[in-house]
């Protein structure tokens, strides 16, 4: 088996790392952070669309991991277990924000209209050189993030876990404590809703190919 990247090489030794971390090996714990931090951070970032919150939740996730890793009985389940911790913190944060009625995790109607307008400006300018393309790449990323934010919590979680984190259905089911069938149903509905949202924002296969 040939590993493609350093991450893959590290993953091959992940089991040993987890076992050592369970014994309280600080080095192993920090290595686990090195391995998983980027993944968890990006997962949370796509969920909440806010870098500061993503950093905070990622740190909370790993602190919770340190405290509870000894309780993890089956080290093969480490990945869904870690995503489960992160997801719980995401849900908690989401509830806190709803309760405090501060900035919503999802995009408000006003922002959405604004982004549509900005995209139209981008279209009108054309795409003749790289900075423009890069700008439009950022625009597209922003729209995708916004659109993910418009999904329900359950759908968003499943879509990000499958499409961006590449988790297996069994892993997602375990992370969310749901059946595989439920996960698949949520995923289908999430993808369908996301497609509708993007179409409403005039982001389709044709426009994206034209843009980029």
């Amino acid at each position: 088996m040939y590993a493609e990247s350093l991450l893959d090489i590290a993953m091959l030794h992940a089991d040993t790392l987890i076992t050592n971390a369970q014994k309280g090996d600080e080095k192993a714990l920090n290595q686990l952070v090195s391995l998983w931090y980027k993944r968890i951070y990006n997962y949370v970032l796509k969920y909440c669309s806010d870098e500061d919150t993503a950093t905070e939740i990622s740190q909370q996730t790993f602190i919770a991991m340190f405290r509870n890793i000894k309780k993890l009985k089956d080290i093969d389940r480490f990945k869904p277990w870690l995503y489960r911790i992160a997801t719980n913190f995401c849900y908690e944060e989401s509830r806190k924000r709803k309760r405090n009625r501060t900035v919503s995790l999802t995009v408000s109607r006003g922002d959405e209209d604004d982004s549509e307008e900005r995209l139209e400006v981008g279209e009108a300018k054309g795409n003749f050189f790289n900075p423009e393309r890069s700008f439009q790449q950022l625009e597209l990323e922003e729209i995708l993030l916004e659109s993910l934010g418009e999904l329900t919590e359950d759908q968003r979680t499943v879509v990000i876990m499958k499409e961006y984190e590449g988790l297996k259905f069994t892993e997602i089911a375990e992370a969310l404590d749901a059946s595989e069938n439920t996960v698949k149903t949520r995923l289908y509905r999430g993808l369908k809703t996301l497609k509708d949202i993007l179409e409403r924002k005039n982001i389709t296969k044709e426009t994206v190919h034209y843009e980029l």
Binding site: S34, Y37, K38, Y41, Q59, I63, L140
Partner: peptide, 22 residues
């Protein structure tokens, strides 16, 4: 429609981040 959307969903790339040490 979903399949074609999946193709450009990948445009939302991962952000680089420096992991903290504990």
């Amino acid at each position: 429609g979903i399949q074609s959307m999946q193709k450009f969903m990948g445009k939302l790339q991962d952000k680089e981040v420096n992991e903290p040490s504990f």
